[in-house]
Design a protein around this nucleic acid. Structure first.
Length: 125
DNA sequence: CTTCTAACA
DNA sequence: TGTTAGCA
């Protein structure tokens, strides 16, 4: 299984994602409603987010903090899909961002949660 | 955990 | 326009 495939594995519950990204569950669902992300649903209708989803959410958050509207963001996301290489964060960038989030002093459980979910990421080789 | 509505700035 | 509280 190659890296790109693993980046799309549905690994995280919404609870984990909200701790990881610092976004509320409602915000995350709202962004999905707006077509900015498309997490998998596992039986019971529960969302399962991939690494790519988390990465996108963190990008959305940063853009929101810069005063962009969701409309603008949605547009920019589409452009990024079309011209794929433009702004695709590397794994290292994502990891650094996540680490920044964790060190930013959110919940202490986020780190172990993240590492726990990540073990599936490494195991599925 | 889910969806939904009504309300706020 | 984006977010939240509160419900079921």
């Amino acid at each position: 299984m190659d890296l790109e495939e693993r980046r799309h594995l549905p690994l995280f519950s919404i609870g984990t994602v909200q701790k990881l990204t610092g976004l509320s569950a409602r915000q995350i669902r709202y962004y999905e409603e707006q077509g900015l992300i498309s997490p998998k649903r596992s039986e019971g209708k529960q969302r399962q987010f991939s690494f790519v989803d988390v990465e996108r959410l963190m990008t959305i958050r940063q853009w929101m903090e810069n005063g962009e509207s969701l409309h603008t963001i949605r547009k920019r996301m589409k452009e990024n899909v079309l011209s794929k290489t433009v702004r695709d964060l590397s794994d290292e960038e994502v990891y650094q961002q996540i680490q920044r989030e964790l060190l930013e002093g959110r919940s202490a459980s986020a780190q172990s949660l993240f590492l726990g979910d990540l073990s599936r990421f490494y195991r599925k080789r």
